[in-house]
Every structure is written in structure tokens, then in C-alpha cells.
């Protein structure tokens, strides 16, 4: 029996390990395999994955793309109705360009997210069920295309949750999902 302050002598590597400690080692190894397997498996069978193609793009060019999209979109009372499956959102201090928008339930949209200035956080929650929420990081110089499909109609609120300057707390947007 040995103190952690003393240098172990002799062949300490070959000393027996307690049976319960050995079982615990097995549990930890098995659990790590489950953690990896589940995460990797969810990319194949799961419906929620923060994945999609990313492109390098200058903030100016991205802003032009969002502007072109806005001109093409139908301007309804509650916001922009996207002309096709693409939804463009430009994060800027302290506003979400392209929001508010009106989307159809059950339709798959390609959300293009990017920034005109600094880093932002694209954080969506359902207005009446706050626990339904998720966040994606928004970087200038990167256009990230992430597909989303909403089944439940309602208002979805977007707040910025990456510090972007003193007006950060005011950066809010929303979109409506209709039947």
C-alpha cells in the first residue's frame, strides 16, 4: 500500500488491479463506445444535425446576395415569403437582415446564414415553447447552408447569442411558420 507522495519501487506496473476497478474500466470503455456510436449514428438516422455546406465569401458579396434575395421575395404583411427553397439571413450589428420571414410548415428550406460584420449567434426558439431552441454560430466570410423543416406552425424568435457589441441584447428577429 502506497502513498501518492512516495516513489513506487519494484515492478508496480505488474501489480494486480482490484476486480471492481477492472469492471469500472470496462464500463468506461464501453460507455465511450456508446457515446461515439450514438453521435456518429445520429448523423445517419437522426433529424437534427448541425451540418450543411459552407462557402468562403466576402461580407460585401454576401450582403449583395441577401439583397438580391430580398428583392425577389414577396413582401407580405408578416414578412418576406421566400421565392423558392432558399432563405437568406444576414447578421449585422444589431439586426437580422432578411427577417421577418413567412415560411410554410412541412417544406424543407435551405437557410443561408452569414454575417456582414462580426461574429453572431443564430439562436432560434419557438415562441410558445421556449425549450424548443437551438443555436448556430455565424461567422463573417462564411456562408453556411443548413436545411430546416418546421412541422409546427407558430412564431419562431431569433436572438443573437454571441456578443457582438454594446447593442447585442437588442438584436432580435422572427419568422412565422404557417400551415
Amino acid at each position: 500500500m502506497r502513498s501518492p507522495l512516495d516513489a513506487p519501487e519494484g515492478d508496480w506496473w505488474s501489480e494486480e488491479v482490484n476486480r471492481r476497478e477492472t469492471i469500472w474500466l470496462g464500463i468506461t470503455g464501453g460507455w465511450a463506445a456508446v457515446l461515439f456510436g450514438w453521435m456518429a449514428g445520429w448523423t445517419q438516422i437522426g433529424d437534427q444535425n448541425p451540418t450543411g455546406p459552407t462557402e468562403r465569401i466576402s461580407p460585401e458579396r454576401y450582403q449583395e446576395k441577401v439583397t438580391a434575395y430580398k428583392e425577389e421575395a414577396e413582401d407580405a404583411e408578416d414578412g418576406l415569403i421566400p421565392p423558392g427553397e432558399d432563405v437568406f439571413i444576414g447578421a449585422m450589428r444589431y439586426n437580422w437582415d432578411g427577417l421577418p420571414a413567412v415560411l410554410e410548415a412541412g417544406k424543407t428550406y435551405k437557410f443561408h446564414i452569414g454575417s456582414y460584420d462580426v461574429q453572431h449567434g443564430f439562436s432560434i426558439r419557438k415562441g410558445d415553447t421556449l425549450s424548443k431552441q437551438m443555436s448556430l454560430q455565424v461567422l463573417p466570410e462564411y456562408e453556411w447552408v443548413v436545411e430546416m423543416e418546421f412541422d409546427e406552425p407558430g412564431t419562431y424568435h431569433v436572438v443573437c447569442n454571441e456578443f457582438c457589441g454594446v447593442g447585442h441584447r437588442t438584436m432580435h428577429g422572427a419568422f412565422t411558420v404557417r400551415e
Binding site: L35, W38, G46, D47, Q48, N49, P50, T51, G52, T108, S131, K132, M134, V146, E147, M148, E149, F150, D151, E152
Partner: peptide
């Protein structure tokens, strides 16, 4: 772990 995944699975479809 199971609770967190359950909560995530209640979200809308995200990602391709």
C-alpha cells in the same frame, strides 16, 4: 444523456 437527446429529438428537422 438520454434526457438531453430526447429534448433534441423534439426539435424541428435540422441539417441534411
Amino acid at each position: 444523456y438520454a434526457l438531453n437527446w430526447y429534448l433534441l429529438s423534439q426539435l424541428w428537422t435540422i441539417g441534411g
